Simulated assay, not measured.
Amino acid sequence: MSRICLYYKREAEGDRWLVGDRYIRHLARRLVRGKSRLSGIEKVFANLCLGLDKLGIKYYINLPFNQLHESDFVGVLGAGKGCLNGYRKSNSIVAGIGLMTHPSEWSTLCKDYPIVKYLQHSEWANNIYKPYFGDRCQIWAVGIDTETWQNQQTIMKTTDFLIYDKIMWNYDIKSKQILRPIRELLNDKGLTFKELRYGSYNPQDYKNILSSCRSMIFLCEHESQGLAYQECLSSDVPILAWDQGEYLDPNRFKWGDPYIRATSVPYWSNRCGIKFQNINEFPNKLEEFLDNLSSQYFAPRDYILNNLTLEKCAKNYLDILLNI
């Protein structure tokens, strides 16, 4: 009988200074930071499993490769080449999200293993992989937990905006060019705001702050999917999003891709909010946003419920897996 066999393996951490110090460093991080947060790719895997659970689909996680049957379906997420070490089966594999940052880092993947599909979350990211993996490339978005992320109607909205700061590159410069003028304009208009910096909070902090904010300003250069902003939409909080339009990872020059079109909000409709390309556009877009907000035009949760629930996205993954 065929089984659904899913794999998620993180890149093994190596010793840095002394033999075995990777274990000491891991313990130290746990003591200082508390329980570690899920990384983006870990959350993708967790939400996929939650979706399959909701569909009542049985699956196996990280079954030893030598225990695979010929009829089993295999899906592999992870980070780095180590996630497929020891795989010597003929079973076709649906790979991705996240085995590499750029396909040039593992251009022989589909020769090394029987990969029949390589998944990326959105169109712009998928376009990066097509020159390397061709027709194997396919788009798949993971679902959002709409039960956890929903409108907290019993909590009063006391703050106009949450500024979600996920500026990734040239932070000192970009924060002066983008973040500082936004703060100043909001203050000038008497609009209240709170701020969160990506990587410095836990999910409950984010959920609590969102529940008290009427809207969010999302500052990130680009997202292949963008779970945090979609959790905001699921919470029925509309977004004013910086969408500057290019992939700005400095490694793009090393990869030979100096110009790549990209977006910070790959899953979006006009009912989710409004986008601005640069700080010069921001004042007018802010006024337009506030007008739409006061007229109750926005319906961001509806977009997530129609497109990105756990069940819908897990079903999409299952369709890809079972049709290979």
Rank of each mutant, 00 (worst) to 15 (best):
G134N: 05
Y198N: 15
Y164W: 06
I182F: 02
Q138F: 09
I182D: 02
I155G: 03
W149Y: 14
Y164H: 06
L119K: 01
F133H: 05
Y201Q: 04
E123V: 10
Q120A: 11
I182K: 03
L162E: 06
T148I: 14
W169V: 15
L196N: 05
L191K: 12
E147I: 07
N202M: 11
R197L: 13
K174T: 10
L191R: 08
N187E: 14
I115S: 01
K157F: 04
Q204L: 13
K176M: 13
D188F: 12
M168T: 14
V116R: 11
I139A: 02
L185T: 09
L196M: 15
N127W: 04
K157R: 15
D145A: 04
K157G: 03
P131S: 07
E147W: 04
I128S: 03
C137L: 01
T146E: 07
R136Y: 03
E195W: 05
H121Y: 12
F193I: 07
E195T: 13
W169A: 00
D112F: 06
T158F: 05
K176Y: 09
E147M: 06
Q150I: 11
G134Y: 01
D165F: 08
F133W: 11
L185K: 12
I163A: 00
G199N: 08
R180V: 14
N151E: 13
D188L: 14
I155D: 04
Y201H: 11
S122A: 14
P114H: 08
K189E: 12
T158A: 11
P131D: 00
E195H: 09
Q153P: 02
I144L: 06
D135N: 10
N126I: 08
Y171N: 09
D188I: 11
Y198T: 04
L179P: 04
N170Y: 11
Y201F: 15
K189G: 09
T158C: 05
I173R: 13
F193Y: 15
L179C: 02
R136C: 04
R183E: 15
K117C: 02
V116S: 10
T192Q: 05
P114Q: 07
K176T: 11
Y118Q: 09
I128Y: 03
K189Q: 15
K130H: 01
I144C: 06
Y113D: 02
D172R: 11
I144K: 01
L196K: 01
Y118L: 13
D135M: 00
I182V: 09
K130W: 00
I144P: 03
Q204V: 12
G134R: 00
I144V: 13
K117T: 01
L185G: 01
I182R: 00
I167N: 03
L196A: 07
L185N: 08
F161S: 06
L119R: 00
K194N: 13
I173K: 13
L179A: 08
A141K: 09
Y129M: 08
G190K: 05
N127P: 00
S175K: 15
K130R: 15
L179Q: 07
Y201W: 10
K189P: 05
N202D: 15
A125N: 12
W124A: 07
S200G: 10
R136P: 04
L179T: 06
E147S: 08
P114G: 08
N126Y: 11
N151D: 13
S122K: 09
L119G: 03
F161T: 06
K189C: 10
D172F: 10
N127L: 12
I155W: 02
Q152I: 06
Y164R: 01
Y198D: 14
P181Q: 07
S122N: 08
M168H: 12
T146C: 13
L185D: 05
I115D: 02
A141F: 02
